[in-house]
Design a binder for these strands. Structure first.
Lengths: 255, 255
DNA sequence: GATATTGTTCCGGTAATCCCGGAATCCGTC
DNA sequence: GACGGATTCCGGGATTACCGGAACAATATC
């Protein structure tokens, strides 16, 4: 029997449960048959999954449509709270967003992908491109490269092997050696840049939070290239992110 | 065989899965044996649950400790996005927090409990008392009462039957008739107040967002009683929340 | 408004799986 | 290096997840 999730653990019903949950997530709101189509689970079986999810109050059935309940919001908050830096980072993000006027992100690495955990919008910033909890490849933006630059070499290789280096734009780094070279450079200069590598017309500058050799995440400033250019992009923003990540490092160390 | 979750759905393994997830949530970080103690599941069985959760990348095993992964953050974001007002409410919350200097909340009702979904902190505000996704009884604070006041009478009764009216402080309304009376008054005046009913020494003012007879949530302003008193608490804040919820209503209607 | 169609809920038998005891292995500690 | 504790692995037996199909409900069609 084929299985979309491969050998991801012995308990089939748990795997299927998350198939169901993710199907509802993807569809936002959906009826039983819609979810059945999405997952390939027989309607009578799916009915039991949905009934149970409703019983534990993790999904909500309104009229005939199912949607995710706010208990997932609670789990999300709990999940974030355990991550060492989430509490510390927020005020720094807000100040940086205010000072620069651009959108600022706090990003971590998990299972080889980047995850956006916090966000602060400056007055100039356009509406958010990513959502909190959203995943992204690491090789195609400043924050991801900043993190990769400080992961052990074997982990970087494993991540590349698992997720590849897919081209998001024509500027995306798609060669392993090119990437490793750039990571070297990022380590040297203490910050990373993204020039239309993830999304055409957008740029970013990022610096990692490294404490005792371990990366805990990265702070990024991003915006449209018509604002992020020249000295502002090459000098000013790199200095600002680096000084903020340094402050966070010290805050974390002495508190 | 006894079951903590009662008749909450036919699929036992799904119920147990959420027992495991919630145990990890409660413990924040925990080893296999700690989770086994918390849930009462045999270690060999639990091992399979954790293995599967790790396989689908919803938990993270570091060293010997398990914790919730950020996929729950993603699900939380998705869950919030489906709720009709989340997108709309944020800028209004921020403005209200700035204007009043106090902490401001957006609250909804789900399964008979209040859930805090958004939050904005004014410069005067102390650190947040609730967390995003956190649940609370509805009868003991302004936002909850504002919502209850606009739910159908039979739903209100059902909620009281299910969750009771537990006393959180000596000011908490613990009598059904007293509560119903106050809800009546809240409907009349268009806002609700909380005077040390949830937490000693804190007050709040709240107004519901009602569109075509349906409550979609409530906005609350909360703070310590030494700041929330007199005309500010009795006149100014009620006017401010009401005007904001009214704006949100109109924003929602014509957009 | 009656009928057709589509979607949901219920039921029961069976194959699969979850489940736990116990053994083996790993890890930290004395 | 031996001990104790925790984790991982294994196997068989009991439970339950699973799906077909029937009953029922809701919606669409004429």
């Amino acid at each position: 029997m084929e299985d979309t999730r491969g050998d991801s653990g012995p308990l089939k019903s748990v795997r299927r449960l998350f198939d169901v949950v993710e199907a509802i997530e993807a569809l936002q709101e959906a009826t039983l048959t819609e979810i059945a189509d999405e997952t390939g689970i027989a309607t009578s079986t799916l009915y039991e999954y949905l009934k149970t999810l409703e019983g534990v109050q993790y999904i909500i059935k309104e009229d005939r449509e199912y949607r995710l309940g706010s208990k997932f919001v609670r789990l999300g908050t709990s999940s974030k709270q355990v991550i060492p830096l989430t509490g510390v980072v927020t005020p720094y993000l807000e100040r940086l967003a205010e000072d620069t006027g651009e959108t600022v992100w706090f990003l971590i690495e998990e299972y080889g992908l980047g995850v956006y955990l916090e966000h602060a919008a400056g007055d100039q910033s356009i509406k958010t491109a990513h959502s909190i909890g959203g995943q992204s490849h690491l090789h195609c933006h400043a924050g991801g490269k900043a993190i990769l630059a400080h992961l052990p070499a074997d982990r970087v290789n494993k991540i590349i092997n698992t997720h590849g280096l897919p081209a998001m734009t024509e500027n995306t780094i798609t060669s392993r050696s090119r990437l490793l070279e750039e990571l070297e450079q990022i380590r040297d200069q203490g910050y990373a840049q993204n020039d239309s590598e993830q999304l055409e017309g957008t740029r970013a500058v990022s610096s990692p939070i490294v404490i005792e050799g371990e990366v805990f995440g990265a702070i990024s400033i991003g915006g449209p290239e018509h604002r992020l250019h020249g000295e502002w992009f090459e000098e000013e923003l790199p200095n600002q992110v680096r000084s903020v990540t340094n402050e966070i490092r010290l805050d974390r160390l002495y508190s």
